[in-house]
Simulated scan of single mutants.
Amino acid sequence: MGTDQDSGEFVREALGVAERITADGSSPWPVEAGRYRLVGARACPWANRVIITRRLLGLEDAISMGIAGPLHDERSWRFHLDPGNVDPVLGIEYLREAYEKAVPGYDEGVTVPAMVEVASGKVVTNEYALLERDLSTQWRGLHRDGAPDLWTDPEAIDEIGKGIFHDVNNGVYKCGFASSQRAYDRAYDALWSRMDELSEHLSTRRYLVGDSITQADIRLWVTLVRFDAAYHGHFKANRHKLTELPVLWAYARDLFQTPGFGDTIDFEQVKQHYYGVHASVNPTGIVPKGPDTAGWTTAHGREELGGRPFGDGTPPGPPPESERVPAVG
């Protein structure tokens, strides 16, 4: 992450290892069950997008998952929740080690999600947007029976996804890391203009594109679910709390209660990361006790809008025991 010195605007770093894993031989990395390990973090929305996609498609047996803890330092994400502070499969303490195996002398950002080849310990890709698309397309042969189609209308999904990325997903970061009032004001206005637009869009339809969950919903939801816990206060995105926005709050609860979404969220790790790592924003490192999360399991009423969450598919089963998160409330 960085800030433009002239404008004070937040600038997201380029992704450092943007290879692809394909089934058609178009890359050096073939689709193969058990070959790769997805490294994510419960705190990170970008990783959460891929974690949800993997859950919905039923790829848990084909792609194992390691979870970096919420706290890290300049050396990168660290496996401090695992015994001995070491990922049990990759045998590393810091994710940077896998990046350096792939690119000796690596000096770009160390981010999650990252797909790592288990045998070599090398990061194959940290390109989250392409990875989530490839999980739906290149990995189709390993999907569970009943896996949903998350790309029912790729053009519409990408079109609405652009605005979500720039103004919402990245927009909250632009608010939080702005170093000038002008940059903050511009990001804040763009965020809330887009949130109002999305609220209007969702007031008469259950999902963003079509009548079932698509990748567009995953992209928006990972920011909404963290909004009150982190972005409203920590990033000064504070016109309203999510709980004060009737349409988006109901939409977010609907998805939270859908298998594959809420069962990937650990609110404590979200707060520990944002308030504990961003010293420039929260120099004391104090982590707030709130907000109350009990509301996430209350009735949302979105069923009245119709729609079929998984289209012609079926819900995923429960997450593996090792991947379960604490219940809310």
Score class of each variant (00 low, 15 high):
residue 297 T to W: 07
residue 316 P to T: 00
residue 89 V to C: 02
residue 188 Y to E: 01
residue 128 Y to G: 07
residue 235 F to M: 09
residue 10 F to Y: 15
residue 106 Y to V: 07
residue 84 G to P: 04
residue 147 A to H: 11
residue 259 P to V: 13
residue 173 Y to H: 11
residue 286 I to S: 11
residue 286 I to R: 15
residue 73 D to I: 01
residue 273 H to C: 00
residue 35 R to Q: 13
residue 62 A to I: 10
residue 243 T to G: 04
residue 91 G to M: 11
residue 189 D to R: 14
residue 46 W to F: 15
residue 19 E to R: 12
residue 233 G to S: 09
residue 15 L to S: 07
residue 255 L to M: 06
residue 250 A to L: 02
residue 55 R to S: 13
residue 67 I to L: 15
residue 323 E to T: 05
residue 129 A to P: 02
residue 197 E to Q: 15
residue 45 P to H: 14
residue 107 D to I: 04
residue 248 L to W: 02
residue 211 D to N: 14
residue 192 W to A: 04
residue 36 Y to H: 08
residue 262 G to M: 01
residue 207 Y to H: 10
residue 123 V to N: 11
residue 176 G to I: 09
residue 143 H to W: 12
residue 244 E to P: 08
residue 246 P to F: 04
residue 18 A to I: 13
residue 282 N to H: 09
residue 242 L to C: 04
residue 92 I to E: 11
residue 187 A to H: 03
residue 233 G to P: 01
residue 204 T to W: 07
residue 74 E to V: 08
residue 178 A to C: 07
residue 280 S to E: 14
residue 34 G to K: 13
residue 52 I to C: 05
residue 14 A to I: 09
residue 285 G to N: 10
residue 77 W to L: 03
residue 11 V to P: 08
residue 280 S to H: 12
residue 115 M to N: 05
residue 183 A to G: 09
residue 11 V to H: 01
residue 290 G to K: 10
residue 155 E to S: 06
residue 295 G to K: 06
residue 91 G to E: 12
residue 167 D to I: 01
residue 214 T to Q: 07
residue 171 G to T: 09
residue 103 V to N: 12
residue 87 D to V: 01
residue 108 E to M: 12
residue 167 D to N: 15
residue 93 E to H: 15
residue 2 G to T: 12
residue 326 P to F: 00
residue 130 L to H: 00
residue 197 E to P: 06
residue 306 G to D: 08
residue 164 I to G: 02
residue 289 K to G: 01
residue 102 A to F: 04
residue 326 P to R: 00
residue 40 G to A: 14
residue 264 T to M: 09
residue 246 P to S: 01
residue 90 L to F: 02
residue 100 E to R: 12
residue 288 P to I: 14
residue 140 R to Y: 01
residue 218 I to Y: 03
residue 251 Y to L: 05
residue 66 G to F: 00
residue 135 L to M: 06
residue 315 P to M: 05
residue 26 S to I: 11
residue 298 T to F: 14
residue 325 V to I: 15
residue 265 I to H: 12
residue 13 E to L: 10
residue 117 E to L: 04
